[in-house]
């Protein structure tokens, strides 16, 4: 597979995180295989990929929870701290906030007790009551963690990630297993973090989440970054074709010779369907014009017409040949 070496911006005052040549080997498996990228301050940076792509491992190394393979050419720098140096991890943990995939708090304790416990660990922390209010958890403050719904637990985890008022926040699959409404609420919270000037790094295997939230996205597959850029850039680069689906009112449209549609300007391919055609095109407006004109020529009335623009999902399929949720 094509290995894209993501450009690494020089270390500047604008860089929150800088990763170079990151490798992590588990017994019998290379989980991270030479990953490099940089995250700018104030950016929402997404790491996208299917399960087992190495997203969480990469994130845990950056968070100082996991030690990467010892290699001289590896750089893991977060907020100017060298994460490979164990002695700097304590300082790192004072500065970053994070949320893990699992619910991860003490189930035997209430929401407030958990948050107060975590708050007491930091040299500086935000008032717990304020966070409970901010995340709409006041009613649940006395409830044990184990009794909360998935969405509520996720809000607690988010509140916990912000206790030490971190400038860099890591979110590992923040909306997995949430219903659509809860997912949108989490998205709003993440956007609010960005507005408060924080840098957010998140992993997800939801394409629409990456498109909706992220300024830039790194697509990971089998331990490598296969593409990196803004969602728009990636779509332009890796999935430029749009499609037009046209359904006709009556079989009259069969009088249109098939190659006449295929030869229209900007149309690359036609696929017949039950009541019409799907046209693949590099220029939506031009192809639409040609299609409607041809139909009118042959007296075929168009019943409905729809267009589809490529998404990151298409980018991913084009890059890896597999579906994201496989």
């Amino acid at each position: 597979m094509l290995q894209v070496q993501a450009p690494v911006e020089p270390h500047t005052q604008y860089t929150a995180i800088e990763i170079r040549n990151l490798h992590c080997t588990y017994p019998g498996k290379k989980a991270v295989d030479g990953v490099s990228f940089a995250v700018l301050k104030g950016e929402i940076f997404g790491i996208l990929g299917p399960n087992g792509a190495g997203k969480s491992t990469t994130l845990e190394i950056i968070e100082g929870l996991r030690t990467p393979d010892a290699r001289p050419d590896t750089t893991v720098s977060v907020d100017g701290l060298d994460v490979k140096d164990r002695r700097q991890r304590d300082e790192l943990h004072h500065r970053i906030g994070l949320q893990l995939q699992t619910s991860a708090l003490f189930e035997e304790l209430s929401v407030r007790e958990n948050l107060e416990m975590l708050a007491s660990l930091y040299r500086r922390s935000k008032p717990v009551e304020g966070l409970l209010k901010e995340f709409n958890l006041e009613d649940k403050a006395k409830s044990r963690i184990g009794t909360l719904s998935g969405g509520q637990q996720q809000r607690v985890a988010l509140a916990a990630a912000l206790l030490n008022d971190p400038q860099i926040v890591f979110l590992d699959e923040p909306t997995t297993a949430l219903d659509p409404q809860a997912r949108r609420n989490v998205w709003d919270s993440i956007r609010a973090l960005q507005q408060a000037g924080k840098t957010v790094i998140l992993t997800t295997h939801y394409m629409e989440e990456a498109e909706a939230l992220c300024d830039r996205v790194a697509i990971m597959d089998t331990g490598r970054i296969v593409a990196l850029g803004t969602p728009a850039q990636l779509i332009r680069q890796y999935a430029s074709e749009q499609t037009i689906t046209a359904n006709f009112a009556s079989p009259v449209y069969r009088n249109i010779p098939a190659n006449e549609l295929a030869n229209l300007p900007a149309v690359t391919r036609t696929v017949p369907t039950a009541n019409g055609y799907i046209l693949h095109t590099t220029n939506l407006a031009e192809a639409m014009n040609g299609l409607l004109h041809t139909a009118e020529q042959y007296g075929a009335a168009v019943a409905e017409i729809s267009t589809h623009s490529p998404t990151l999902e298409d980018v991913f399929i084009n890059l890896t040949g597999k579906m994201l949720r496989d």
Partner: peptide, 16 residues
Amino acid sequence: GWRERGTLKRLSATPL
């Protein structure tokens, strides 16, 4: 139990 549920991992990401 705390290790299985990730509670310990979460705590290890704090200065504890």
